[in-house]
């Protein structure tokens, strides 16, 4: 049960990363590799601010701002200096590695003795309280933290969805779908991409901020490989929901992230040879991508549903 709660919590935290990747990858059609750097940047900024006495909530929001700055730099490189988008992301990601070291002052900051955004929630229960469901037990504190993270993610997703209903948000979506059309409507496509990447990396940095507070330390290497998991979550998410509506995509990204962490947890729990872990993870992800499709094929009636969906939308 502890494992389940831990996996869901981690999945929810990293769903901010997935939402960030969703914005750049799906909405803007921009393959942004800044993510590896900006998630660690968010963590670094949060850890540094918390250890120097800034309230954790402020530190978390500052992480969002720092990520947004990193994203805008990528955006400016890509649109104003006309550097290939992939390369722009790689450049900023690489630079952020050193920036993160500078921000933290060292490669690892422990947060164990400091209050975090989770501290208040954890106080709702005593450290040895157990919460039980049938035969499973888990520390009540962990359960509260999970609920808190869930609420925070729902709020973030709702804000993101609301933003995409505004005029600005609609223009951003159109920028990704058809830049020529939106340019003809008098929108500056370049600045739209900059804003989108800022939003995307802000969300990613927010994930980093929550991650360091959850795991109790920030480490400069924490971003390595994250962008891949972000892509994986978004793509798994798309296979989990039917439809292309932006709200569904957001929910899909969250579900993809949670499902992904669950699969990793199962792989971990089965205690395979440690060297096989990543192979098994990859196989699970593959299964998650392929199975929904296969299921649809084997159930001919399900095809009808998908056909009906556009009628509602």
């Amino acid at each position: 049960m502890t494992l389940l709660i831990g996996a869901v919590t981690m999945g929810l935290i990293l769903s901010l990363l997935a939402m960030g990747v969703l914005v750049s990858f799906r909405i803007l059609s921009f393959r942004d590799l800044t993510v590896d750097g900006s998630i660690a940047l968010g963590g670094a900024v949060t850890a540094m601010l918390i250890t120097s006495g800034v309230p954790p909530l402020v530190a978390t929001l500052a992480a969002f701002a720092s990520g947004a700055v990193a994203g805008s730099v990528t955006g400016v490189l890509a649109t104003k200096l006309r550097i290939n988008g992939l390369l722009a992301g790689i450049l900023v990601m690489t630079a952020l590695y050193s920036v993160n070291l500078r921000v933290m002052g060292k490669s690892n900051i422990p947060l164990m003795s400091h209050a975090t955004v989770f501290t208040g929630v954890q106080r709702l229960a005593k450290s040895d309280d157990r919460w039980s469901l049938l035969v499973w037990q888990a520390p009540t504190q962990d359960a509260w933290v999970m609920l808190f993270v869930f609420a925070a993610i729902v709020a973030a997703a709702a804000l993101l969805w609301t933003y995409f209903q505004t005029r600005h948000g609609l223009s951003m979506r159109a920028t990704g779908d058809n830049p020529d059309m939106i340019r003809a409507l008098g929108v500056d496509v370049g600045w739209m991409i900059v804003a989108g990447l800022a939003l995307s990396n802000g969300l990613v940095a927010l994930a980093g901020a929550l991650l360091v507070q959850y795991q109790g330390f920030a480490d400069v290497q924490m971003g390595i490989g994250m962008v891949v998991w972000g892509f994986a979550s978004v793509i798994i998410g798309e296979s989990l929901v039917r439809g292309k509506h932006v709200g569904l995509l957001i929910i899909g990204a969250i579900m993809g992230s949670v499902l992904f962490r669950l699969l990793v947890a199962i792989a971990l729990r089965w205690g395979l040879n440690p060297n096989d872990l990543k192979l098994v993870t990859a196989i699970f992800v593959l299964a998650a991508l392929v199975l929904p499709d296969l299921l649809t094929k084997f159930r001919p009636r399900a095809g009808k549903h998908t056909a009906e969906v556009p009628a509602h939308a």
């Binding site: 049960m1 502890t2 494992l3 389940l4 996996a7 869901v8 035969v135 499973w136 037990q137 998410g237 296979s239 989990l240 929901v241 039917r242 439809g243 569904l248 929910i251 899909g252 579900m255 993809g256 949670v258 499902l259 669950l262 699969l263 947890a265 199962i266 729990r269 089965w270 998650a288 199975l291 929904p292 299921l295 549903h305 969906v309």
Partner: peptide
């Protein structure tokens, strides 16, 4: 209905995890 496959998949994974985590 659009979310059903995702929710089902998550529930299934959670169940597998819980079963392998039987005390």
């Amino acid at each position: 209905r659009n979310l059903a496959p995702g929710l089902a998949a998550i529930a299934m994974a959670a169940a597998v995890l819980l079963l392998s985590d039987l005390p």
